[in-house]
Amino acid sequence: MFRIVLPGSHYQKVCRANRMNFIQKIKRKLFLPREVIEGYENPELVETIFLKTVNYKPDGQWPLVAGVGTVLDFGGGAGLHYKVARQQSPDIRWAVVETPAMVRRANELATDRLMFFERIEEAADWLGNVDLVHSNGAIQYVPDAFGSIQTLCAVRPAKLVWHRVPISDDGPRREVQTSYLSDNGPGQLSSSAEKLVRYERTWISERAFIEAHENYKIAERGPDPGEHGTQQFKFLPC
Score class of each variant (00 low, 15 high):
C15V: 14
R19T: 12
E35D: 12
V36E: 11
I37E: 10
E38A: 13
Y40G: 05
E47L: 00
T48A: 04
F50S: 11
K52L: 06
K52W: 11
Y56C: 07
Y56A: 12
G67Q: 01
A78I: 01
H81P: 01
K83Y: 04
K83H: 10
A101G: 02
N107H: 07
E108Q: 13
L109D: 02
L109S: 09
A110N: 05
R113W: 08
I120A: 05
A123H: 02
A124Y: 06
G128V: 00
H134A: 02
G137L: 00
V142R: 06
C153A: 15
C153Y: 04
R156L: 06
H163E: 10
R164M: 11
R164V: 11
I167M: 15
S168E: 10
S168K: 02
S168M: 11
D170W: 00
R174I: 15
R174L: 15
Q177L: 09
T178C: 03
Y180V: 02
L181S: 07
N184L: 09
N184V: 05
G187A: 00
K195G: 07
L196I: 03
V197N: 02
W203I: 00
I204L: 15
A212E: 12
H213D: 05
E214A: 13
Y216I: 03
I218N: 10
G222H: 03
H228S: 03
Q231A: 06
F233P: 01
K234H: 01
L236N: 00
P237V: 12
